[in-house]
């Protein structure tokens, strides 16, 4: 075969100016160049996302710490969630039956949907089944994520804080914007409470309280601080006067974590 010959029988070498169907274009170089532009934009967006969302590394694996609440990566959550609906002896439905049937249906789709028509509207059964499956998968994934978050919150509430306390997530102090820092309560907080609760109320020995005002009003704050939570937090948080407690409660009630 001569150099430049054609291997695909009946398909002559493509020439742009010999177009038969308007709208078609050569894969190389026309289409590929455009595709590369799309690819470059896509990659750029990806890199930007990666840059601003650094991955963190959790604490080193500790086989003895059985209190850790396990969770698979998000794209397995829907499978994980299915298991929860078949507790005890029915677990095989979740571990084997449902996944197996779903896999077989997916694998043999071309032999189940054998009509010649391809338009999605003209084969409502196949289209409907796939739309339903997609929604179900998304719903199950979300359900699992919500339940996992609730479990983690409940566990951290029991583990470190006494019942009835608000449990705010720990976030870096740099992301906290305390408001109304001109109120007298702020100075009292800085002098008496920040040692335990952190300069930006981000938490330390005591829990984070940077957005406590979202959950507790001034009265609730006042009564909690007055009582304290001995032995962890002294009554009045170590303050001596009733009016200081009132001022700090007034200020904390403003912190709604905007």
């Amino acid at each position: 075969m001569a150099a430049g010959g054609e291997r695909i029988p009946g398909t002559p070498r493509y020439r742009h100016h010999q177009l038969r169907n308007p709208g078609t274009e050569p894969f190389l170089p026309n289409f590929l160049l455009k595709e590369w532009i799309v690819g470059a934009v896509f990659l750029l967006a990806f890199i930007l996302w990666v840059w601003f969302n650094p991955v963190d590394l959790g604490p080193r694996a500790n086989p003895d710490d059985t209190s850790f609440i396990p969770v698979p990566d998000w794209y397995f959550l829907f499978l994980y969630q299915i298991l929860k609906y078949y507790p005890g002896q029915y677990i095989v439905f979740g571990t084997v039956l449902v996944p197996l049937v779903a896999t077989l249906l997916l694998l043999f789709t071309p032999w189940l949907d054998v009509s010649k028509t391809r338009h999605p509207y003209k084969r409502p059964l196949a289209t409907g089944a796939m739309v339903l499956t997609t929604f179900l998968v998304i719903w199950l994934t979300n359900e699992a994520a919500v339940q996992h978050r609730a479990e983690v919150a409940a566990a951290s509430g029991q583990g470190q804080l006494s019942a009835g306390l608000v449990s705010l997530p720990k976030i870096p102090a740099s992301q906290i914007h305390l408001t109304a820092t001109d109120m007298p309560g702020y100075q009292i907080f800085e002098q008496n409470c920040s040692g335990c609760h952190g300069k930006s109320a981000e938490g330390g020995f005591g829990p984070p309280i940077y957005a406590i005002g979202k959950y507790w009003d001034e009265n609730k704050l006042k009564s909690f601080i007055t009582q304290g939570s001995p032995p962890k937090m002294p009554p009045k948080g170590g303050l001596s006067s009733e009016s200081d407690v009132e001022k700090v409660a007034q200020w904390l009630a403003q912190q709604k974590g905007s």
Binding site: I8, T11, R13, Y14, N21
Partner: peptide
């Protein structure tokens, strides 16, 4: 074989 083909509209 790899690259020389039309991309349909």
């Amino acid at each position: 074989d790899v690259a020389d083909h039309e991309v349909p509209a």
